[in-house]
Design a protein around this nucleic acid. Structure first.
Ligand SMILES: [Mg+2]
Length: 338
DNA sequence: ATTTGTTTATGATTCG
DNA sequence: CGAATCATAAACAAAT
């Protein structure tokens, strides 16, 4: 099981520069309207389909929904960061990012136009992603995408969904990117900015110094910065099942779980101090990543990818018409009891 | 033509 | 409530 997946991933990595990529069906699924209850139930009925060999059917699934193709508990920013950090040179083309996400999470093999648009938006909008120009030796469609140098620890303490603060490139205070974003809606705009230079799409961010470097230069810098270890091979052996902790909290009948108590237990187990600030009140991902950190040391990206490859069905239930996670619903014990 | 990238707009949700 | 963060749609330009 593990070895096969290793081989698959290695193949995908070496082939990433070639044309050979796994194609997926890209089914168009229209469950946007009836998202909350019905889709949850039907998904549960399909649960045993995808990954029957999973070992954690029984114990600690009280706050997980084993939906085969449910949305993974990661933001687009998290997904992109995983793709970049797990790539050999720590930079990805757009299509490679697509491919990584689809390979890792079955949910994203469907409705590809929708989320891929969001991916593009996220790459362009967020300052933590910078473009690295192609070298002449490797011509092709778009640029490479890399993480901004100073964008480290974006998901500290396991906030992979909604972070307290996003990465902002404030090299020069100048025209803050968010000033553009702040006076939107509510008509409070004092026409403070309004300029926008309005050059449209050809405009380059004046702040991104990284994208001005050549491809090789950037590549070297990244290799120096953090040499990428072979966690995939190393850690898989030392890793016990992520859910082998047998966390028993109010298991029966109660639909509500005491979140803070749950976190407290997790922090105790990991000998961490409970910090209500870095652990947002209702973010379950702190818990998940605490669990995962046990086996994977200090590389959450690698560990998430492994987690995803082993448990593609694990995710939480989106609550409303938008695929945005309502934190309280994530703690529901079982989707059937909802 | 299709892919890639930028930008604007707006709904949803959480936090102080 | 207001600001911040994320999701999604869409218009549109540029590159291949
Ligand atoms: Mg960007």
């Amino acid at each position: 099981g593990n070895q096969q997946q290793q081989q698959q991933q290695q193949q995908q990595q070496t082939n990433s520069s070639n044309i050979l990529q796994t194609r997926y069906q890209n089914e168009q699924i229209n469950d946007k309207t009836s998202n909350s209850l019905t889709s949850v139930i039907t998904n549960v009925q399909q649960q045993s389909m995808i990954n029957p060999s999973t070992t954690l059917t029984t114990s600690a699934n009280y706050r997980r929904n084993f939906n085969a193709c449910a949305k993974p508990p990661y933001s687009y920013i998290s997904l992109i960061t995983m793709a970049i950090q797990l790539s050999t040179n720590r930079m990805c083309t757009l299509s490679e990012i697509y491919q990584f996400i689809m390979d890792s999470f079955p949910y994203y093999r469907q409705n590809q136009q929708r989320w891929q648009n969001s991916i593009r938006h996220s790459l362009s909008f967020n300052d933590c992603f910078v473009k690295v120009p192609r070298s002449p030796e490797r011509p092709g469609k778009g640029s490479y995408w890399a993480l901004h140098q100073e964008a480290t620890n974006m998901f500290e303490n396991g906030c992979y969904l909604r972070r307290q603060k996003r990465f902002k490139c404030n090299k020069r205070l100048e025209h803050d990117r968010d000033s553009n974003n702040n006076n939107r809606r509510h008509g409070i705009n004092n026409s403070l900015d309004k300029s926008t230079t309005s050059t449209g799409s050809g405009q380059r961010s004046p702040i991104s110094s990284a994208s001005d470097k050549s491809c090789d230069e950037q590549l070297l810098l990244m290799q120096q910065q953090q040499q990428r270890s072979i966690y995939m091979q190393q850690q898989q052996q030392s890793l016990e099942s992520p859910d082998s902790r047998n966390l028993q909290v109010s298991s029966s009948t109660t639909t509500n779980v005491d979140v803070k108590q749950l976190k407290q237990e997790q922090c105790d187990f990991n000998q961490m101090s409970f910090d209500s600030h870095t652990f947002p009140n209702y973010s379950p991902f702190a818990i998940n990543t605490l669990i995962m950190h046990q086996g994977f040391g200090d590389n959450p990206a690698a560990l998430n990818a492994y987690y995803a490859s082993q448990l593609p069905q694990t995710a939480f239930v989106p609550s409303s018409s938008s695929d945005y996670y309502h934190h309280s619903t994530m703690y529901a014990s079982q989707p059937t009891t909802l």
